[in-house]
Design a protein around this nucleic acid. Structure first.
Lengths: 143, 143
DNA sequence: TTGATTTAGATGAAAATGCATCTAATTGGA
DNA sequence: TCCAATTAGATGCATTTTCATCTAAATCAA
């Protein structure tokens, strides 16, 4: 069925705003000599978990990675010494990911740029209710 | 400066929702044997303009294309006969883009899939005010 | 007018992404 | 138990995207 104008408008706004802001952030990270935003997702997920480590497929689901894409990103993270990929004892197919000391330091350095960038862009909305309303609407789109 | 939790939540929601929905849409188009969503942006922009044609840099700005990326996308569109790229008489460096008959047909075919997909996802929000509020908040992020 | 700067667009090379497929291990039924 | 189906992850290949750079034209300042 055809979308209404309001539906279409939201989709366009969602797309453009995400794209514009993501680009700006990613390129600022690069300017600062830091890795892409996507690395941050993995590092932060591994750092904040209470568990001993996470499985690749868990991160894949949470952060919407393409499986092959994550697989290769992990290879890069391992090469850089930011993450360890270990065999998962309970399942011969599986791996466990753990962030390294170096990985924690890198995540922190990235956050020092990323955090303020989030504030810079999202901070254009000063009304807390408006922020929360928008979040809740967007979340509802994909539940 | 550090972002507030509400700011961070919005950024995460914005990212995830856009990514999830865009992926789903793009992959549905592919399943239907149609070109990627990005092609639609160009075709539609060229079809809806009142002017005789558009310049590549205009589309680049409106739809946030990387210059080289758009340049190559245009080559593909030309190869497929969907768009004509002509020299722009008033500026020896410039080009003018015009959609072809075939391009219009393709855009229409794509819309037959894309439109309902927009409705499918955005239609999860049934309250028109909520749709409008979210659009307005998102637009404000990048003004 | 002329030389420096900017702008439009193309392109080579490298990186990222997506898709299909593969291997190996696990699970689930008959 | 045994075999088919599923799942985790890796990998080859093709396409897309980005980055840096290049050419040519236009603009702008002296």
């Amino acid at each position: 069925m055809e979308p209404t104008d309001e539906e279409t408008n939201l989709w366009i706004a969602l797309n453009k705003s995400q794209r514009a802001i993501y680009r700006a952030m990613d390129s600022e990270l690069k300017v600062q000599g830091l890795p892409p935003l996507r690395w941050y997702d993995v590092l932060w997920e591994l750092e904040r978990t209470k568990r001993k480590g996470l499985r690749p497929f868990e991160i894949e689901k949470t952060h919407l990675f393409e499986q092959s894409n994550l697989s290769r990103l992990l290879q890069r993270l391992v090469e850089e010494g930011l993450v360890d990929v270990l065999d998962f004892p309970d399942d011969g197919r599986g791996k466990v990911l753990k962030i390294t000391k170096k990985g924690r330091r890198m995540r922190k350095r990235m956050w020092a740029v990323y955090g303020p960038l989030i504030h810079k862009f999202m901070g254009r909305i000063t009304d807390v209710d408006e922020l929360n309303n928008a979040s809740s609407t967007l979340k509802r789109l994909i539940d």
